[in-house]
Nucleic acid binder design. Structure first.
Lengths: 199, 199
DNA sequence: TCCATAGACGAACAAGTGTTCGCCTATGAA
DNA sequence: TTCATAGGCGAACACTTGTTCGTCTATGGA
């Protein structure tokens, strides 16, 4: 990609970030200091052809930047620059839409620390009442919400902590018990990485 | 929001997901089985006014769905439905753009397990060579990339594991050493939650 | 009954918008 | 030199698109 093409991409990218919709041909022309819309169309065609941009023809503001997410590097091959293509194992799409049956539960306390979940971590919960033995999830028991591992044994149902300082919680027939959802992901933000926006 | 309004939102949402740009008034009309664009405009005005939709007037395909991310629930107040407004402590925007100076490093091995980072976890690294003592980061030493805590003491510089089975790595004057970046976030996907897309 | 609100019709208008066509310049490789 | 490629101009064209206006129906209070 040429420098000029990078400049176009940056402009389009920023425009989309700022406005939530892509720029029109004339807006790009203006932003890039061009007087002809044909020049823009040429450039868009080049960018589309090289795969840097996705676009639906004849559609107003039909530009998309084909983000494939943030690269995941696995074993890094010696000799190569760290972020080079050869090291990429895959991508994680942080912009992938998640249905509104998901929410994060902020972990309070160390009761799951042996499962590497710490106080302050956020666990992504998917709302469901389907839970199998051994699965981690969020549960409400007698009015209190807790993060535990669900265990069904011959001795009954238990909510198991992952910390010897805490005792398993037996779920009796007369307890007010509800499965809230299962844990799909654990996120821990360090030193101001991904922050939580106030409500 | 009325049922009809929800149907509009769903249509628009799906359209954006499918196409990467928002539908035009006429496309909405067609999709909702309406014959007049005025009906659509009425509805869009209602949705915009109630805050369900964001939109720039007079701009083609200028619709946005105002996602404020995934809610984070902290201490859940008893008596309330779990996902009710009152429980929301904040939001995490998974669709927040991250610059391309970030990448994920897939953790290989248990050398940081006492810091609650497990084999297979993904750590978000921000490329930088600024690192202070006590900070966790990715380092290259003698051709090998490793995730460790950086420690500068009177005895010299060390890369500290968080696992008694591993020994600190002293960084000597003649070692080939480079700071790759610092850890901003830890992500662990459980049972097919957020998956890694193949490269 | 009166009235506000949600929802809808159809036609016409005024911008907005992508595309095309012919032509031009500069750069770098063959 | 010759040629391919990136980048650009300006005007004209045709289609897309949001908006407006008057009118209508149904529903659910007050």
């Amino acid at each position: 990609m040429t420098d000029r093409q990078k400049m176009f991409m940056q402009f389009i990218d920023k425009f989309i970030r700022d406005n939530g919709y892509s720029p029109s041909v004339r807006e790009i022309a203006k932003g890039m200091g061009l007087s002809s819309t044909a020049s823009v169309k040429n450039m868009l065609d080049r960018l589309t052809q090289s795969g840097a941009l996705r676009r639906t023809e004849n559609i107003a503001r039909g530009l998309e930047k084909p983000s494939h997410g943030i690269p995941v590097l696995g074993r890094i091959k010696a000799g190569l620059p760290v972020t080079s293509e050869e090291n990429v194992e895959g991508y994680i799409r942080l912009d992938k839409p998640i249905g509104d049956d998901h929410f994060f539960l902020r972990v309070d306390g160390d009761s799951m620390k042996d499962k590497a979940i710490l106080d302050g971590d956020c666990v992504l919960i998917r709302l469901t009442n389907q839970v199998t033995s051994g699965q981690m999830g969020a549960f409400r028991i007698n009015g209190e919400v807790t993060l535990k591992t669900f265990e069904r044994t011959s001795a009954g149902v238990f909510l198991m902590p992952a910390n010897p300082d805490f005792a398993p919680i037996p779920v009796g027939e007369y307890d007010d018990f509800r499965v809230i959802g299962t844990v799909k992901m654990v996120i821990r933000a360090l030193e101001g990485g991904y922050d939580i926006e106030p409500a």
